[in-house]
């Protein structure tokens, strides 16, 4: 961990999050929102679950529709961190990475 002087401004991690159409009712119709949260430390990027929690605090209810009560992504929800598909909510997400939520469903 890198020590910082106490009067340093807090480091802020910023993410652009793409919202799929089934969830835009929670984001006031926006298909893209900006999520910010304090970066834990320069060496430890916040986990995906922290970004989703921050998303939920801005848009209440959105988390439970995409993540179940055990903290797992629901079966037909996919998340891309940058260009990589992830399902582990502990995946670290470096600041300024784009996060894309995808509602993936086939059939009628």
């Amino acid at each position: 961990m890198v020590a910082r002087p106490a009067d340093d401004p807090p480091m802020i991690a910023r993410y652009r999050v793409k919202i799929p159409s089934p969830l835009v009712s929670y984001t006031l119709g926006h298909d893209e929102v900006i999520v910010t949260l304090p970066e834990l430390s320069p060496d430890h990027a916040p986990p995906l679950r922290a970004i989703v929690a921050a998303l939920d605090s801005s848009f209440p209810g959105i988390r439970f529709r995409m993540v179940d009560e055990q903290g797992e992504l629901r079966p037909h929800i996919a998340v891309f961190v940058g260009s990589k598909a992830v399902r582990d909510m502990a995946t670290p997400v470096p600041p300024d990475t784009d996060v894309m939520i995808v509602a993936a469903l086939s059939g009628g």
Binding site: G61, R65, M66, G107
Partner: peptide, 24 residues
């Protein structure tokens, strides 16, 4: 829905307006 998790919607005016449960 096909992709989204379960929830409950409520209407207090016979279905004219609806709101989602804050804790489903």
């Amino acid at each position: 829905t096909g992709h989204l998790g379960p929830t409950v919607f409520r209407s207090a005016d016979r279905g004219r307006t609806w709101s989602e449960a804050s804790k489903p």
